[in-house]
Nucleic acid binder design. Structure first.
Ligand code: SF4
Ligand code: SF4
Lengths: 154, 154
DNA sequence: GTAATATACGACTAAACGAATCGTACATAA
DNA sequence: TTATGTACGATTCGTTTAGTCGTATATTAC
């Protein structure tokens, strides 16, 4: 139930690249500074994303990274799955990392985790960099909205 | 985005206790055997749940554990939150484990994680042991249903 | 040409966490 | 009085996370 820092950092950098789409490369130094990410760590991450084909590098002085695909064609789900591996709360309901469990035939609560996975997955896969970039930042109150409406503690 | 084995084991044991509700205690030995959980590990878990007030112990020979509250009053969300701590995919959208992030005022994708959290939380908090116990086990095909309908890979 | 500024790539590390295991003390019913 | 329980603390071990570091290579401004 947790997203790694690597994924978070990757997304921060990607959205900065969306902002600079078709306006030349942005260096890791700049990406790191603007997004408050350790520079050498981000280097690693950018390299991984280059291999994935999401970004392209421009070498040498004045170099940096650019988005290699359109913001419409990269989903947050893809990024999460690549860096965190799994999107399922538990391996017995994972497609890509399925591991069998002896209790499957009788387990009652497995369906609940399946539902959680399905919804999280649908949400993340349908979110492209472009669509998310349109949205506004979260207002502080919104984080507690659920609790205030008599809902759950989270 | 992952549930620990401890939570899974706790839930397995709890549902066995639901099955035996008002029919006397079940020993850890039996709980471990029926649910395929390491016995000494389950001992720890049961003790934690006793402290939480979800189960009560009956000591001595013929002893074991019984449910201390009605199955309607224990939610899966409570169990998940106790053993896994957090239900949020990232700390900046957590109520109980909130940690600030410098990017909050400008972050675009934070809302997405907030949505994931809200839905997962609603699902888990509204699931009581009693309501889940009514359901049927998941059929094998159901795990892949999302992918087959042209949805996401998970 | 060369210095400055970039990416490329592999190796390494410290700390935290997850998933147990172990020893032993105490309780109680048969 | 012993077999079968729970209670509780300590310890272990492997993996993962979140980085750091060294060095090689590429490009351009001067
Ligand atoms: S017990 Fe149920 S939820 Fe847990 S791993 Fe097995 S099948 Fe999945
Ligand atoms: S970058 Fe956005 S999502 Fe990530 S921690 Fe900061 S506010 Fe939260």
């Amino acid at each position: 139930m947790k997203i790694s820092r690597k994924t978070d950092y990757a997304l921060r950098a990607l959205f900065t690249l969306v902002e600079h789409y078709h306006r030349g490369p942005v260096s890791v130094r700049e990406l790191a500074r603007r997004n408050d990410v350790p520079k050498r760590f981000l280097e690693q991450i950018m390299l991984e994303m280059k291999v994935k084909g999401w970004v392209a590098s421009v070498m040498g002085k004045q170099g940096g990274y650019v988005l290699a695909k359109s913001p419409e064609s990269i989903t947050v789900g893809q990024v999460v799955r690549h860096f965190d591996g799994v999107m399922s709360p538990i391996a017995c309901v994972s497609v890509h990392h399925y591991q069998p469990c002896s209790q499957e035939p009788i387990c009652r609560f497995r369906r609940l985790f399946l539902d959680v996975r399905n919804h999280a997955s649908r949400l993340l896969e349908s979110a492209t960099l472009a669509s998310i970039y349109q949205g506004k930042p979260v207002r502080p109150e919104e984080v507690f909205a659920l609790e205030l409406t008599g809902g759950a503690g989270i």
